[in-house]
């Protein structure tokens, strides 16, 4: 303030810096996000949903992660008592899954799972690990979650199809 001439020059320089730094910041942040998408591609997804497995024609024997909802009414135990059979669905495509091992606490029909394994020749996904996926609902026991999954299987699926989807 004491030297108005000098402070004017300083102001212009500060304004210039503001414009340059802002522009650089927007450009760099945009570039990083675009590069992430461009180079990351599918590897950024932890798992493939059944529709994506179908679309990509994943060959039998190739290891990958499959994720989706455990179809309601699909879960049962094999005759040996140790192997579990269930269907993973994304409401459009179903993939039968076979798993021998311990299931996590949150494993439930109608809830999400992420499994890792391989498709066999019969099109059954033989899982080596099964992880339970938690949804975004938090609610006390006995009350309905606010955002219940729209697809419960298979009744809702056929209803959806009838609805013209």
């Amino acid at each position: 303030m004491a030297a108005p001439k000098k402070s004017k020059g300083l102001k212009t320089r500060k304004r210039q810096r503001l414009v340059i730094v802002s522009a650089a910041l927007i450009a760099i942040v945009g570039a990083i996000i675009l590069i992430t998408f461009a180079l990351g591609g599918d590897s950024l997804n932890l798992y493939l949903q059944p529709s994506a497995v179908m679309e990509k024609q994943v060959p039998a024997g190739k290891r990958f992660r499959l994720g989706g909802l455990v179809a309601t009414g699909s879960f049962h135990r094999d005759t040996d008592g140790l192997t579990y059979l269930f269907t993973v669905t994304d409401c459009a495509v179903d993939i039968p899954v076979k798993f021998k091992g311990l299931l996590p606490d949150l494993f439930r029909e109608g809830q999400g799972v992420v499994t890792e394994g391989r498709l066999n020749k019969q099109g059954v996904f033989v899982a080596e690990t099964v992880l339970a996926k938690h949804d975004e609902n938090y609610t006390p026991p006995g009350t309905a979650p606010k955002n219940a999954e729209a697809c419960s299987h298979p009744e809702a699926l056929s209803a959806l199809k009838k609805g013209g989807r």
Binding site: T36, N45, V114, E136, N137, P140, N147
Partner: peptide
């Protein structure tokens, strides 16, 4: 990237429960 990772990609982590379109999916008592 952190905020939208759960929407952009398939993740094990659940999607947003509080700051999301359509309001929170957490019961008021929580």
């Amino acid at each position: 990237i952190i905020k939208f990772s759960v929407d952009w990609w398939n993740t094990l982590h659940q999607p947003a429960s509080v700051f999301r379109m359509g309001g929170p999916t957490i019961a008021d008592s929580m």
